[in-house]
């Protein structure tokens, strides 16, 4: 898969790396069970700090998209990962739009709760 980071962007590099993986999962170019390059490999590849990559991978693990195994690197979680990746991207888009409108965190959560109770 393609990792690309923009050094001039205000988005932290780790988040940019996480976004690359999410996008690749969502469009199916990376499949469940596939192994991503280790944080060290990817860091030398892109010329960034290893901890930057690890921050990105950690974020993906929190989202349930990636499993980090000591010594074995990063493996894409099995199951309907592509759907989960799309959902995560949607959630981030929701938050970004809400922030742009000036909504508080509570208001965003309220919005989601209302949507949940409506179904």
């Amino acid at each position: 898969m393609l990792f690309r980071v923009d050094l001039s962007s205000p988005v932290p590099l780790g988040d940019q790396i996480a976004a690359c993986v999410r996008g690749a999962l969502a469009d199916g170019s990376v499949r469940p069970g596939e192994r991503l390059p280790s944080a060290r490999e990817l860091a030398t590849s892109l010329g960034v700090n290893m901890h930057t990559v690890l921050r990105g991978y950690q974020r993906l693990r929190e989202e349930g998209l990636l499993e980090l195994r000591r010594g074995r690197g990063a493996v894409v979680t099995g199951g309907p990962t592509a759907g989960r990746a799309r959902l995560t991207i949607g959630a981030r888009r929701l938050v970004a739009e809400a922030r742009a409108l000036g909504l508080s965190d509570e208001e965003v959560l309220g919005l989601v709760r209302t949507a949940l109770s409506a179904t």
Partner: peptide
């Protein structure tokens, strides 16, 4: 690829 962009494929 932008000038400030760097990319790797693996």
């Amino acid at each position: 690829l932008g000038d400030a962009e760097t990319a790797g494929w693996s």
